[in-house]
Nucleic acid binder design. Structure first.
Lengths: 250, 250
DNA sequence: TTTAAAATTCTCATATAATGATAAAATTAG
DNA sequence: CTAATTTTATCATTATATGAGAATTTTAAA
């Protein structure tokens, strides 16, 4: 294995269940010599990727907090879509979600809650299931043919389970229908009894970059209501994509 | 130079001014061979520290967003102090700030604004000046003697400019006074016309871990008012530190 | 969908830096 | 201030990183 990978592998240890690691524990888990391990930990600590206090082991460093801030303030998606999403969520007493595609992931990057009926667990930084839910599927629907092929082959079962089709042809067709509609709604794919209504967001070059969505209790809305909201979400998302084209950064 | 450092050096390129780098630009800035550079970028991208989209160069990856979330949800300081700070800021129509020490840095990790008179620029992830302002100085005041020595020698001028004393003895004395008072207030050290009132937060082992502070327009408060608020802030911070002792994680 | 162009990864011989045992130094805690 | 502990430095050996070019993958255009 590459040395660099062994260095970065250390970061993989840190999780919600175990955010703090003693030197000895890392040693036991990864088995480097003490010299090497100290060298690795110093490199990561100097880079701000880890932090340590005497007698308290290692935990994730300030760089993650600082770079998240940097990403947040330089993200035109948040700047442009955030306020509009907040407004729309308030107007419809629901939860608004802004997601971004990161190659093979869909992450929530902004959220606004305007209801107490559902408590969304999708804060900024929380990953979404890639195949399930409107906010993700609307992104899948706009991948290039090549990218979709690549993703489909090792994940055929996930596509089927998410109701997108039993073979690639069927998946292409259902994703094509989502593209044609301009918006997409799912019910209970992520949380039982909860409806998601999403539309795609495109970057300044016209490529899929994320999704704009509302989340609300299934009982609160009729099929017609969903349709009306879908059109609104689609129109709003289209406006945002248009603004992104005029905005310098991506 | 160590190879690992050259790898991580790539991350240093990314800034608020230039959050996006083309391969050719990185090549020009750091001068590795194409093979090596591609190898480095792939390692960082696979680790989620960078992200890339065709024709759009590289930018910071999803790991920073995800790990900031992880840090946020596992941070007992935010869980315990956040709600109390919000309440206190609302009650006094000011800005509440929660800062954390990261070895040589002081970072804002939580903020609540309950006034329109000042607009705090200290969102989560924004670094604070280490020597200036109540929120930082109250942390300095509780460093160990050894740590203070280490920090003082190369920063004597900064200590003087921040009004903490002209030599180490004087600095020790003024920091001792801050410790004795239990809270500390400064005016205009960070933003002109703005008063900061801060108290220290200690972790479960009794070591300084951050600060709890309120920020308000100087015109809105008398010397007595500051004193009253200072006592409140100190008492509240003390309660939080006490709770941290009972809390498992740090 | 097919094809051409561009971007990225792979291969391999050589040079260079990583490794680990131990010694030295720095830091903590009493 | 001193003893105990943690962290860093030293150095010979070994293993891996490097870079040029070839092969492949991926993109974009027809």
């Amino acid at each position: 294995m590459q040395r660099h990978e062994r260095l970065i592998q250390i970061l993989d240890l840190f999780s919600q269940e175990k955010p703090n690691w003693e030197l000895e524990e890392i040693h036991a888990a990864l088995g480097h010599s003490k010299s090497t391990l100290y060298r690795y930990l110093k490199t990561l600590t100097d880079a701000g990727l880890l932090t340590t206090f005497p007698g308290r082991g290692y935990s994730l460093g300030s760089r993650f907090v600082e770079f998240d801030y940097l990403i947040r303030v330089t993200d035109p998606l948040i700047r442009l879509a955030g306020p509009v999403l907040t407004e729309l969520a308030e107007a419809n007493a629901c939860v608004g979600l802004l997601c971004r595609r990161y190659s093979d992931k869909v992450l929530c990057v902004f959220q606004h809650t305007a209801t107490t009926e559902i408590h969304s667990s999708y804060e900024r930084g929380k990953a979404r299931p890639i195949f399930r839910g409107a906010a993700s599927q609307v992104i899948l629907a706009h991948l290039s043919a090549y990218q979709l092929n690549r993703l489909y082959t090792p994940n055929a079962a996930s596509f089927r389970d998410a109701g997108l089709g039993d073979d690639l042809a069927a998946v292409r067709q259902s994703l094509g229908a989502i593209r044609a509609a301009g918006w997409h709604a799912t019910e209970g794919q992520v949380t039982p009894g909860v409806v998601g209504i999403a539309a795609p967001l495109f970057d300044e070059r016209g490529d899929i970059t994320g999704s704009f969505s509302l989340t609300l209790p299934a009982g609160n809305v009729t099929a017609e209501g969903i349709h009306t909201l879908g059109e609104t979400v689609a129109d709003t998302a289209q406006d945002i994509s248009q603004s992104l084209r005029k905005d310098p950064a991506s």
